[in-house]
Amino acid sequence: MIMWLSETSTGTIILDITTIFLLTGMIVFTSLYRKRGFVSDRIYFYMIIADIVAALTDGLNYFFLESPLSSKGALITAGDTVFSIAFEVIMFMMVLFWDYRLREDKKHTVRFVKIAVWPCVLAIIMILGNLFGGYLFYFDKVSGSYVYARWYDLIYVAVVIYVGIMLVQIFKKDKRTFIIFLLAIGCRILLRNVLRDVSSTPFIIAILLVFFHIQEMNENYYKEVEG
């Protein structure tokens, strides 16, 4: 598509641009909900922003990966650090979002934060530590390639914990959303294993956010106002 870009990078960039486009639309279409001021509405907005950051850094990473820039190693490492942190934060916020949606009790959600935040905090410390240790990912200047190091999969520990909690929360709240949630995660894993390389994580998160909002719209908008 663009000069030096391979099909993999082009595919990733197309999906990342679509993600940003979709999420920008979501900011517009959820504006009325934000005016209600519910905890879940605010968390939803922050998830959109975090996913836009993830899509932006993901797209830029793939763009730089095959670019002739001399400083691309530092740019990619910084980009992947931001992307990974955004990913962890989104998963943490998703758990909070569903906790509130399930109970609609702000006090419970505040108490829940104190426990649920720890996997995210530890993951962020680990990701930031990688900037000095390079045990998760690094850019190999000799070969000019990006390397996933031995402990890379540790990034997914917190994610797996959050997805596990979310599965229970969504199952309790709405079975149809639960099925689609499983389908989306299944698609992500399948595509990753069959087709590899093209990064679709920000897009899958955007799709999940779309589904979460549709699920919320099924309920009465004025529910709490009307009592």
Partner: peptide, 23 residues
């Protein structure tokens, strides 16, 4: 083709979710 398949699978997923979850 990989890119096309990826974007088509995403399109199907988006619409299946919309139809299944929507009111």
């Amino acid at each position: 083709s990989m890119v096309t398949i990826y974007s088509d699978v995403m399109a199907v997923l988006l619409l299946v979710g919309l139809v299944v979850i929507s009111r």
